[in-house]
Amino acid sequence: MSAALLEARDLSKTFPGKGMFRKSRPVQAVRGINMSIARGEAVGVVGESGSGKSTLGRLMLGLMPPTEGSVAVEGRPLSDFTGAEWRRLRRRLQIVFQDPYGSLDPRRRVGSQIADGIRLHGRGDAAKQVAALLGRVGLEPAHAERFPHEFSGGQRQRIGIARALSTAPDFLVADEPVSALDVSIQAQVIQLLAELRHDLGLAMLFISHDLPVVATLCDRVTVMYLGRVMEEGPARPIFNRPVHPYTRALLSATPRLDPARRAGRILLKGDPPSPADPPSGCVFRTRCQHAVEACAQTVPALAPFGDDGRRVACIRAGEIG
């Protein structure tokens, strides 16, 4: 694998507590994340709502400062970039949002919105490039004159992808880009992202709650729960044989056509704890069917497991894996 394009080192983000009448506890959204993404590599991040996935994506893009740790581009911390250097770097780091309609200005024609990045970074003939980008994502050049409300959800997401590509980025965060779309349209958008990644050599952080989708698109996967990494490694081995109880539960929740496999559904106990008041020890222990007393005393390290390149944060991984 080539040297890292982006690398997170001991990355943490804590938000201050909010309360009208009394001070509430701070929210630990991301805690101690280490991650590297090489050029052309796609890394998936999965987990339930509130697991810290979107916060991690924004930290990797420099859209918010970390509380602890750092993010580096080609070995240089984001905090070192200032002024014109930061503007040039911003061209290289882009995002596709979950809500394709909410991320577009309803009062402006889509061609004008796609052209913003081209003009801002002085990338030549905007009209010609907008037409090429629309064609690249499966739309017609004439669509540049339409407004966002004139498109379907899937078409709007294609427009969002075209806008992200307008600056010729090296790295793309795709934050739940298909969760708001119909299943048939989801497959088309995933295929488009896979083609773009291959053709353009894009590095990608793909955020989702759907393990099978991530396994289709990504080289590696990171499973997050309450701001921490539970399991990470090559996507296919984790998809085929998950080790951490949380990864197993996520995968078992995926719809299956085979009745025998549907019978293996793992139902988690209760709701996720508040990130403002996480459990002691392993943060997943209050919902884990394998938890023992020691799980409340020890924060499990993310340690190598097996010979397929994965790491697992579970003190009982050797027994249940």
Score class of each variant (00 low, 15 high):
residue 161 I to K: 02
residue 298 T to Q: 13
residue 105 D to S: 10
residue 264 G to Q: 14
residue 40 G to H: 04
residue 270 G to S: 12
residue 210 D to S: 10
residue 36 S to W: 00
residue 288 C to N: 02
residue 119 R to F: 02
residue 219 D to E: 15
residue 320 I to L: 15
residue 303 A to Q: 13
residue 239 F to W: 15
residue 108 R to C: 11
residue 159 I to P: 04
residue 277 D to L: 12
residue 307 D to Q: 12
residue 241 R to V: 00
residue 268 L to R: 08
residue 187 A to L: 12
residue 119 R to H: 09
residue 106 P to F: 13
residue 72 A to D: 05
residue 22 R to K: 15
residue 89 L to F: 13
residue 295 C to H: 06
residue 74 E to W: 00
residue 279 P to R: 07
residue 38 A to M: 03
residue 95 I to Q: 01
residue 43 V to I: 14
residue 246 Y to R: 05
residue 240 N to K: 10
residue 60 M to W: 05
residue 40 G to Y: 08
residue 151 F to T: 09
residue 315 I to S: 04
residue 18 K to Q: 15
residue 299 V to L: 14
residue 58 R to A: 00
residue 243 V to R: 03
residue 158 R to E: 02
residue 159 I to L: 13
residue 171 F to E: 03
residue 258 D to C: 05
residue 7 E to Y: 03
residue 97 F to T: 00
residue 220 R to W: 02
residue 305 F to E: 03
residue 201 G to V: 05
residue 270 G to E: 12
residue 257 L to T: 11
residue 65 P to W: 00
residue 251 L to W: 06
residue 64 M to L: 15
residue 31 R to D: 15
residue 193 L to G: 04
residue 259 P to Q: 10
residue 185 I to C: 09
residue 218 C to M: 10
residue 225 Y to C: 01
residue 76 R to M: 06
residue 160 G to Y: 03
residue 248 R to N: 08
residue 75 G to N: 07
residue 40 G to M: 10
residue 9 R to D: 09
residue 118 I to G: 02
residue 111 G to E: 07
residue 22 R to F: 14
residue 182 D to A: 10
residue 5 L to A: 04
residue 272 P to D: 09
residue 107 R to V: 13
residue 91 R to H: 05
residue 250 L to P: 05
residue 79 S to T: 15
residue 30 V to I: 09
residue 238 I to T: 01
residue 108 R to K: 13
residue 301 A to H: 10
residue 18 K to G: 11
residue 103 S to H: 04
residue 61 L to D: 02
residue 114 I to S: 06
residue 63 L to V: 07
residue 310 R to A: 02
residue 87 R to K: 15
residue 212 P to Y: 13
residue 236 R to L: 13
residue 141 P to H: 07
residue 221 V to K: 02
residue 49 S to E: 08
residue 301 A to W: 01
residue 111 G to V: 07
residue 249 A to N: 03
residue 55 T to V: 14
residue 23 K to V: 12
residue 221 V to T: 13
residue 307 D to H: 07
residue 293 E to A: 15
residue 232 E to G: 00
residue 146 R to H: 13
residue 80 D to I: 01
residue 143 H to I: 01
residue 87 R to G: 00
residue 317 A to P: 00
residue 148 P to S: 12
residue 211 L to R: 04
residue 267 L to S: 12
residue 61 L to V: 06
residue 315 I to D: 02
residue 46 V to I: 13
residue 309 G to A: 10
residue 98 Q to S: 05
residue 183 V to M: 14
residue 118 I to K: 01
residue 105 D to N: 15
residue 8 A to Y: 06
residue 112 S to W: 06
residue 30 V to S: 07
residue 162 A to N: 06
